[in-house]
Amino acid sequence: MIDRKLSTVASMAPPPVGLWILFESSGVNSAKDVLNEFFEWFGDLGIFFWRVVRAAASPPFEFRELFRQLDEIGSKSLPLVALAGGAIGVVLSLQSRQSLTRFGAKSLLPAAIVFSIIHEIGPIITALVVAGRVGAGIGAELASMKVTEQVDAIEASAVNPYRLLAAPRILACILMLPLLTLAADLCGLVMGWVAQALVEPLSLHQFITSGFKGTGFTDFLPPTFKTAVFGLIIGLIACFQGMRTEGGAAGVGRAATSSVVLSSLLLIMADVVLVKIIIIFFP
């Protein structure tokens, strides 16, 4: 059940510390209130996550909705992610070339591009682009359903809204983020090579041989699969913000904005922790 009491409290709850622009609109003044709201928000998020996990782990499974979301989140984000990855590849090539030439290490350019994109830039750019596109979409869609009582209607029809609405979206985000990251990596590398080849003739074979020299699966798999955690963050935050919305059109707008802002912020914070963990386990 979408607990109204929890929802009412949560609707007044601002997002975590740092988003002062959203605090101002909530009318919260004292530091104590801010701290209380901060912990309440995380508590509500934990309860929401637990309900989704319980709903997702028990039948009936909503496969049709999951496939629809895989298409919505995966296929439809692909052009945007590919474009962002390609652009970053070009920028990285142009910027790195200047710096490396200054230090007489121009021959390391392919390796610099490959490592930068695969280790960090590909995953984080993909996650931020998806947070912008998908986070806002999920947040606004679910918020709109909530304020027009469609979520209540689902519940009144004896269908679990956590199972039907939240679980497929979150799962689709988790599954699609690594695949989209691969696409962004590929586009970034190809465009990085193109940018370099336009300045100085270099075959793709030479670029790949030189760039991937000394790399193994441990360089490639952990950074790619850490994006599954980013997917969890994006899906969870967007569904949570959407399904607790109140207050008509203004509430829908707030849910969409806060979904993007909070998921972007949290996934960057999570990246710090994940990078440290990857360094410890895959030195």
Partner: peptide, 12 residues
Amino acid sequence: MGFLFQQGALYD
């Protein structure tokens, strides 16, 4: 139980 919501609450 059947429930008719005030605005219908049809799935858009």
